[in-house]
């Protein structure tokens, strides 16, 4: 709460780390591109959005294939993985605070199961065509995520209130139910099993600028909304009654957070599949190294989550190239041990 000077430093460090990660990530890969040329391409993209400065970057000494690879393949992938990591981590912070539950993640209210079911249906129905540049699988996943959240919310609601415990339990119940339907679909159309399983493990392969643009605004606006409620979430950590007594409209705040988070998660899931672990672990890591104050924690967690997913996706596409490893596998493999290390080192309760 108190605006300690080190908080400013933390954000500078995080932003520098983010930019470095992005440039390095754009350099790594099958094509032999140098750091300098990827940096140049980056800058030229940034400057093309700020024509007022009138600065031109000379790209003539870089092979046009390299420019194409960085601009059309690697850059959108990097940006998208950042956006998804950012969204999941911000929502994770909001849910853990709102539900006062350290086990909460963006998928806890049934979002992932709904999305997976939607995707499975689309895959089963062979809806390979695209709509506005977005595949039907994504659209179905988006609708599934929203539908399950909507059902969970209405199941949990009693009169004007949404008790947190009921919300969690309804989320788990609906999640199991939807997963069961998805498993059933996998049984009856067994040739689709591989694509469904791959989708549920998350991936950024062959995602382009259209995905970035679709994800960008909902996630940006959603995170700004959540950020405006970060102080209310701080107060809600002390208990809902206490928060109410201190002037927070608890039920209204919960509704806004739930709806905003559900939309952000649905968007993230529809462009990337289900990437577990990020929304659970990154908020804890950020809480340990930054502060439990949600006003600082939320943006910090978003940045850390974004950086983390950019790094993870870089590994995903290079470790056993040309085969892509699903991102969800690497997040769990790397995030788990690191989190345990932090837990043991700080020996603090979460």
């Amino acid at each position: 709460m108190t605006n300690k000077p080190q908080n400013g430093k933390i954000f500078i460090v995080l932003i520098v780390a983010l930019l470095t990660t992005m440039v390095v990530s754009a350099t790594v890969g099958a094509a032999d591109i140098t750091v300098v040329s990827s940096l140049k391409i980056f800058l030229s993209h940034i400057l093309s959005y700020t024509p007022i400065l009138g600065i031109q970057i000379d790209l003539t000494d870089i092979p046009s294939s390299h420019i194409a690879i960085v601009s059309n393949i690697r850059l959108p992938r990097i940006l998208l993985s950042f956006l998804v990591g950012y969204a999941l981590s911000v929502v994770g912070v909001a849910f853990q605070g709102m539900l006062k539950n350290p086990m909460a993640d963006p998928f806890i209210i049934g979002t992932s199961s709904g999305a997976a079911l939607g995707a499975a249906i689309a895959i089963m129905l062979k809806l390979n065509t695209a709509f506005l540049g977005i595949g039907f699988v994504s659209i179905f996943a988006f609708c599934g995520a929203l539908l399950s959240t909507f059902i969970v919310y209405n199941l949990a609601r009693s009169k004007a209130k949404v008790p947190v415990t009921t919300l969690l339990l309804a989320g788990v119940a609906i999640g199991q139910f939807f997963t069961a339907i998805m498993s059933f679909i996998m049984i009856i159309s067994s040739k689709d099993v591989t694509s469904i399983v791959f989708w549920t493990m998350g991936s950024f392969s062959s995602r382009g600028w259209n995905h970035v643009w679709i994800a960008f605004f909902p996630i940006l606006i959603g995170s700004i909304v959540l950020f405006f409620f970060s102080k209310d979430i701080n107060l809600m950590l002390l208990g809902e009654d206490t928060a109410e007594n201190m002037g927070v409209e608890v039920e209204r705040t919960k509704k806004i957070i739930l709806i905003t988070s559900a939309l952000m998660t649905a968007v993230a899931v529809s462009v990337s599949g289900i990437i577990g672990f990020v929304g659970l672990i990154i908020p804890h890591i950020a809480r340990m190294i930054v502060s439990p104050d949600n006003r600082i924690l939320m943006p910090a967690s978003g940045l850390i989550g974004g950086i983390f997913l950019v790094v993870v996706d870089t590994f995903a596409r290079t470790i056993i190239a040309p085969t892509e490893v699903p991102v969800g596998i690497i997040t769990a493999l790397s995030g788990g041990p690191f989190f345990i290390y932090l837990l043991r080192r700080s020996k603090k309760m979460i």
Binding site: M1, T2, N234, L237, L238, M246, G247, P292, D293, K348
Partner: peptide, 16 residues
């Protein structure tokens, strides 16, 4: 309170 807010943070919340 289960989170490690400082005492001043907690009192400052009263200004909400």
């Amino acid at each position: 309170v289960n989170y490690n807010f400082t005492v001043e943070d907690i009192v400052l919340m009263g200004r909400h």
